[in-house]
Amino acid sequence: MQHASENWWVSGLVVLLSLIIIGKVLSAQRGRVPFIRRIPGLNAIDEAVGRATEMGRPVMMVPGISGLDVVTLQALSIFSYVARAVARFGNKSIMATIDPIVTGVAEETLRDAYADAGRPELFEEGDVRYLTGQQFAFATGVAGILIREKVAASFLFGAFYAESLIFAEVGQQVGAIQVAGTTQTNQIPFLIAACDYVVIGDEFYAASAYLSRDPTLLGSIVGQDYCKLLLLGIILIGIISTSLLTLIHGGPVAHLLHTLVDFLKVK
């Protein structure tokens, strides 16, 4: 589908979903802050950073291997929280990046996080390292840092592909506590096998809301849940209508159901 005019029904649905999310964000910003459940993997952040500090070893962060997109920005906002924990404990953090644009934004994120925690002097220029633009060269680069720096806590958040297991398994070999989260569902089994905590599915997007308790983000999460309810409703209507059509043949009810099913079908 190239343009909305090819299917106004689907396009209208996207607009409706967007309005629900924006509405909930604005309502939360005006003080109606909702509650969201705890995400166990994220509670482990302080524990992992604290343990790394006790061991006198650094914390590693990898914001995935895609460019500066929504997923990477989300990862960076999670790392902003991790970096503040690192600064509070007075430890050192390293962030490896595959994309030059991400490198600049990551430097700003870390520098601001350290300043916010009252320890701007802890941030060094080489803490954010642009390694390469190549997927597997990046994987070896990260593996090298994990081994050489004897990293004690490793955070993998962002878009990961086949290289995810290289990061996670090498992290496991050096004995690091590992917390991971990705939007790439096909990598989740590998991360579960090698990491201590894994944030699954849209928990990844909920993570920054959970960590910051920022009303905007919390409102957005609740908006998403309302959207899910709406979609579930549409799916249920589709299932019931299609099932009824196997029982009812002919007549105005069948005609109505046919029209409804045809309307719901994505062309």
């Binding site: 589908m1 190239q2 592909y161 086949a162 569902t185 096909n186 990598q187």
Partner: peptide
């Protein structure tokens, strides 16, 4: 890598022309 959604979302219409997919094994279940 993830490339399917773009073809399915922007190029295909009513599943035409046929879209065939050859991913690496780890990607397949998704």
């Amino acid at each position: 890598v993830e490339s399917t959604e773009t073809w399915l979302g922007l190029f295909e219409q009513n599943n035409s022309p046929p879209y065939l997919f050859a991913p690496t094994a780890v990607m397949a279940p998704t």
